[in-house]
Simulated assay, not measured.
Amino acid sequence: MNGSQPAPAQGFSSVHSAIETWFAANARDLPWRGGRSPWGVLVSEIMLQQTPVVRVQPVWEEWMRRWPTPGALAAEPSGEVVRAWGRLGYPRRALRLHAAAGAMVESFGGEVPGTYEALLTLPGVGSYTAAAVAAFAFGRRENVVDTNIRRVHARLVSGKALPSPSLTAAEMALSASLLPADPGESVLWNAGVMELGALVCTARTPKCGLCPVQDECAWIAAGQPEPDYIPKGQPWAGTDRQVRGAVMAVLRAAEQPVHLDLFLAPAADLAVEAEPGLDPAHRGPVRVQLERLHALNTDPGQLDRAIAGLLTDGLAQHSETGLHLPN
């Protein structure tokens, strides 16, 4: 179990203190911090997966106004949940969060469960999210390991520029060994190291002069050696993911099903009069998104593949009148 990991490495208390003090003075004022509801913490953790804070915050704030409890989200049609997800990317996360809300209503009295093990039973909640919510929402001693934490540990303790390309058992063991024994301090440590990685110990341009533990950093002591590998960025332009995103933008803009022919029509043929099946109040936004889709010059095979994938993932449905968000 995450909470029963070994005590921190001997002699690490000064590093704990330095990072926790730095965090108290430099932590960003994020709306899901500072005693927010466990539901708000869970929503933030799902949204923040592979998505920067600046894009998440306005969407999170709107979600919490609209759906302040798991029960409120569970009562909403899944299509509205996907629509509200907007352009956060990886919209399957919206469906999983919707399913998790339903599971909380059914099995946990409409509340977010408070233990790592119970959180793992929710749809779409993996080991990282379960540990993060248990720690940050419920104050439990959990081994929270995200990309930022891995990078700080790699430099501070292992003397490496970057962590391994994928999470290893050795990294989990190292993180566990550094975790303070006191639950309250462990929460501050997890949050502080994560924030240090996000703001100072960044991947490309670390601000070592601002680091509260630069004198203890093994990477600096080793002369800041280059990474063992070159990180590969995820391509976007021309990919099926880009086309899927463009199709989803059309569906989010539409209040009624969109004829499949409109996805294939050249932009020049998109006269308003030629947009059957669209509510007149929404023809403008839908037209804009269709034009953006067509500007990608996607071949029909890739478009068919993207639409088929959305249907398979439950992000879209097809009826006699066209393609639409799930009911």
Rank of each mutant, 00 (worst) to 15 (best):
A131F: 14
V133Q: 12
V133T: 01
A134H: 09
A134P: 07
A135W: 03
A135Y: 11
F136G: 00
F136C: 04
F136N: 02
A137N: 05
A137S: 12
F138G: 01
G139D: 07
G139R: 09
R140Y: 09
R140A: 13
E142A: 12
N143R: 12
V144S: 12
V145W: 10
V145P: 10
D146W: 09
D146S: 10
N148M: 08
N148I: 00
I149D: 09
R150M: 07
R151I: 00
R151F: 00
R151S: 04
V157K: 04
V157F: 10
S158K: 13
K160N: 11
K160H: 13
K160I: 00
A161H: 09
A161C: 08
L162F: 13
P163M: 02
P165A: 09
S166E: 15
L167R: 12
L167M: 12
T168D: 02
A169P: 07
A170R: 15
E171S: 01
E171M: 00
M172I: 14
M172R: 15
L174H: 14
A176K: 10
S177G: 14
L178I: 01
L178T: 05
L179F: 05
P180G: 10
A181P: 01
P183C: 02
P183Y: 11
E185T: 07
E185P: 02
L188D: 09
L188I: 06
N190E: 03
N190V: 00
A191G: 06
G192W: 04
G192Y: 11
V193E: 02
E195M: 05
E195C: 10
L196K: 04
G197V: 00
A198D: 07
A198G: 07
L199I: 09
C201M: 03
T202K: 15
A203R: 15
A203C: 11
R204Q: 12
R204C: 00
R204W: 06
T205V: 14
T205C: 11
P206K: 01
C208T: 07
G209L: 09
G209N: 14
G209E: 14
C211T: 04
